[in-house]
Simulated assay, not measured.
Amino acid sequence: ITYAAKAGHPFSAIGKLLIERGEIERSEISMQTIRRWLGDHPRQVDEVLWHNRSYIFFREVPSADLNAGPVAAAKVPLIAGRSLAVDRLIHTFGFPFFIRSENLVHLDGDKPFARVMLALDTGSAIVGPARGDIFTGSGDDAGELAGTVRHDADFVILLPNAAAARFA
């Protein structure tokens, strides 16, 4: 599947709403805690979900390689652990970034996260020059990993020396 369209409304994070209402502590917010809260409060689910009127629509895309990742906004398959979603108004698809986070250890066997990644995707919640989302893969296990990534990181764009010299 790949992106097809969006509803056109601005993104409104339901996690932020739950924090503002005092339902979940800011330090505890994650995909998992939001899902748990929704499961524990079934009568409030519709009202909380309707807070975010930004919807993304997807479409099926024929693929010769069923093992390839989902198709990114850059029109190439995403690669788990190497593909990065960035603010498209600031960054160009295909640029390499070096991402390092001392506190993000659960993706690399308890070692600090440090690797080169490619900017291949985007998302309406990814706003700012040093903001990105790591594609952790497809399926439930990858979703569990992704849902707990909320870490400060060094976010460095890599440029050829000649291009970097123009900015010096």
Results as ranks from 00 to 15, higher is better:
Ile1Met: 15
Thr2Pro: 02
Ala4Ser: 13
Ala7Leu: 10
Gly8Phe: 06
Ile14Phe: 06
Ile14Thr: 03
Lys16Thr: 14
Leu17Cys: 06
Leu17Lys: 09
Leu18Tyr: 06
Arg21Gln: 08
Gly22Arg: 13
Arg26Gly: 05
Ser27Ala: 15
Ile29Leu: 05
Ser30Asp: 06
Ser30Tyr: 05
Ser30Ile: 04
Gln32Ala: 14
Ile34Phe: 08
Ile34Gly: 02
Arg36Pro: 04
Trp37Tyr: 13
Gly39Phe: 08
Gly39Cys: 09
Arg43Pro: 07
Val45His: 08
Glu47Gln: 11
Leu49Val: 05
Asn52Ala: 03
Asn52Gln: 06
Arg53Lys: 14
Ile56Lys: 00
Ile56Glu: 07
Phe57Gly: 06
Phe58Met: 08
Arg59Trp: 09
Glu60Leu: 12
Glu60His: 13
Glu60Cys: 11
Ala64Ile: 13
Gly69Tyr: 03
Val71Asp: 05
Ala74Phe: 07
Val76Met: 01
Leu78Gly: 01
Ile79Tyr: 02
Ser83Arg: 00
Leu84Cys: 02
Ala85Arg: 00
Leu89Arg: 15
His91Ala: 02
Thr92Ser: 13
Phe93Ile: 02
Gly94Glu: 05
Phe95Asn: 06
Pro96His: 10
Phe97Met: 07
Phe98Pro: 05
Ile99Gln: 06
Arg100Ala: 13
Ser101Cys: 11
Leu104Ile: 09
Val105Met: 15
His106Asp: 08
Leu107Asn: 00
Gly109Phe: 14
Asp110Phe: 08
Lys111His: 15
Pro112Leu: 11
Pro112Phe: 07
Ala114Leu: 03
Ala114Ser: 05
Arg115Leu: 11
Met117Leu: 15
Met117Asp: 03
Met117His: 07
Met117Trp: 04
Leu118His: 01
Leu120Val: 11
Ser124His: 13
Ala125Pro: 02
Ala125Ser: 12
Ile126Tyr: 01
Gly128Ile: 13
Pro129Glu: 12
Ala130Asn: 08
Arg131Gly: 00
Gly132Gln: 00
Asp133Lys: 01
Ile134Met: 01
Phe135Pro: 01
Thr136His: 05
Thr136Glu: 04
Thr136Phe: 04
Ser138Lys: 10
Ser138Phe: 11
Gly139Ile: 12
Asp140Pro: 11
Gly143Val: 14
Glu144Trp: 13
Thr148Gln: 14
Thr148Ile: 10
His151Trp: 12
His151Cys: 09
Asp152Trp: 11
Phe155Ser: 01
Val156Thr: 15
Leu158His: 00
Pro160His: 07
Pro160Ile: 07
Asn161Pro: 12
Ala162Leu: 11
Ala163Thr: 13
Ala164Met: 11
Arg166Pro: 02
Phe167Pro: 00
Phe167Glu: 05
